[in-house]
């Protein structure tokens, strides 16, 4: 217990750093990843704006980023992080690579939940003379709402764990703390504390996500 108490302020700082990294990357996933997911859905051959070349190019880019093992992506993007935030070290720098990974991750989940919408519902909107904007906001995002929230839950949880990996290359956060004290100094107490914090975070996110998705789902 002693070592944990002694490190209380460091633990607090680490939690804050983890939350920063997760928030930034998840925000990027929503702001950039969701529109890319919608684009993928709309341009898929046979869909509303079917466009095979565009679909292939965007799909290829998404797959490209997703096929990088995260740690390698992290290292590969060091120059890019330096360009964007002026440094390659710290939670902000790690957030750049986390965001780059989170965007295609969520984009695919968005695309998938849009594909689950029954075609007839979209067709009814087309038949009513609705514009693309009305179909996207009034039909796609409304009908896929539970799936979008579940996908977001999966994304947040994945990126809590990715952010721990980012800690190892100087990103800070809970993962960094676990490595420095728990692993390099053989301080089991700190290691256990870090794991408990991560478990609690993941449980809270999952619980909140499942609750929200169920509330939004009116399909019974």
């Amino acid at each position: 217990m002693n070592s944990i108490l002694a490190l209380q302020s460091e633990i607090e700082k680490a939690i804050e750093q983890t939350l920063t990294m997760v928030s930034i990357s998840v925000a990027a996933a929503i702001i950039i990843g969701m529109p890319i997911g919608i684009l993928l859905f709309l341009t898929a051959p046979g869909n509303l704006k079917g466009n095979r070349p565009l679909y292939s190019v965007v799909g290829y880019l998404v797959n490209l980023v997703r096929s990088f093992p995260f740690l390698i992506l992290l290292v590969a993007l060091i120059p890019f992080s330096r360009m964007i935030v002026g440094t390659a070290i710290g939670p902000l720098a790690a957030s750049v690579s986390l965001s780059v990974a989170a965007i295609p991750f969520y984009a695919r989940l968005v695309e998938q939940s849009l594909r689950d919408i029954p075609k007839g519902i979209i067709e009814a909107a087309v038949a009513s003379g609705a514009s693309l904007r009305h179909i996207v906001f009034g039909v796609l995002l409304s009908e896929a709402r539970p799936g979008l929230v579940s996908g977001l839950t999966v994304t947040i949880i994945s990126f809590i764990s990715y952010s721990a990996a980012a800690g190892t290359v100087g990103g800070g956060g809970i993962g960094d703390l676990a490595i420095r004290y728990g692993y390099q100094r053989f301080d089991t107490e700190v290691m256990v504390a870090c794991i408990v914090i991560l478990v609690v975070m993941v449980q809270l996110v999952q619980w909140a996500g499942s609750f929200a998705a169920a509330r939004l789902d009116k399909r019974k």
Partner: peptide, 19 residues
């Protein structure tokens, strides 16, 4: 789109927005 607004349509499986 404009013209379709004066053409209503109903379907076998209703196709209502479920949410």
């Amino acid at each position: 789109r404009e013209a379709r607004r004066s053409i209503g349509m109903i379907f076998q499986h209703y196709n209502l927005l479920s949410n």
